[in-house]
Nucleic acid binder design. Structure first.
Lengths: 133, 133
DNA sequence: CTTTTACCTACTGTGTCAATAGGTTTTATC
DNA sequence: GATAAAACCTATTGACACAGTAGGTAAAAG
């Protein structure tokens, strides 16, 4: 299952995209609109800043804003950043274990096929595709 | 991520299918061939018996066997049984929460699309498709 | 210098994962 | 009937992730 981190991150990006006013948007506003604990969002948005998805500005008039145009975000990169990996099995993950059964594993090809399908799906979806306003 | 329960279950079924001798196969043999703790497999196989995927026989000469032909198992049903659900988000799960944002949720359509794609993939894959012997 | 905002560290309760441990019951064979 | 082999059963455990909460410090604008 996709955890709240990944799902909330997408909602934050959507909120930023749809309420874009050229400046910074305070997390307080996002939290209220999205009905998500602001405190919890802080943790998620921190990762998003580190990953370059959003930029933050401290102080009065501060907040967050997108670093690119909505069509330049893929859902895949958002989930990958927040979830750590999208791989269905450990042996296909970025820091995957080197399974000794690899060469003879009868299920590996299926997982690889699934992995590809999934990646194609999420890398093909862009933030702009989800916007309704 | 697919947990060991789901992955091991598939391997157990594959092992039963490929080492079919018309009778029952002891878990000890499966555990040794698959290099998985027999004790842990007991838990998994128990669920598989309850779910009707395999049949068990106690006593000497006992063990487990498939209840159908390999082409009559879909990977989807195996994973669904062992993982509980395949849904990417809680609001789409069998015993899903009734989310109040449902009607306006901008991400729900994507999850639904993903859910469908995933289900089609795993329901389309059969145990016989994975057999190499 | 006050307000508003991001940013930072730490903690916590709950649950799941991946097993392990140690039994009891069933069944075929000697 | 004793024995061995197998399933079947209940309970426990350590580690870790999830989904937050709590309480602060630093920065920037007015």
């Amino acid at each position: 299952m996709i955890s709240t981190k990944g799902r909330y991150a997408i909602r934050v990006l959507l909120d930023l995209a749809e309420n874009d006013n050229g400046g910074y948007i305070p997390l307080k506003d996002i939290a209220e609109r999205q009905e998500i604990s602001k405190k919890y969002l802080e943790i998620i948005v921190k990762d998003m800043v580190l990953g370059g998805l959003v930029a933050g500005a401290s102080g009065k008039g501060g907040g967050y804003r997108l670093t690119r145009k909505p069509e330049e975000y893929t859902i895949g990169e958002v989930l990958e950043l927040l979830e750590g990996t999208l791989s269905p099995v450990a042996c296909l993950a970025d820091k995957g274990i080197d399974c000794p059964r690899k060469s003879t594993c009868e299920t590996l090809p299926m997982w690889e096929e699934y992995d590809r399908m999934q990646r194609d799906f999420f890398n093909g979806k862009r933030l702009s595709d989800l916007m309704t306003r």
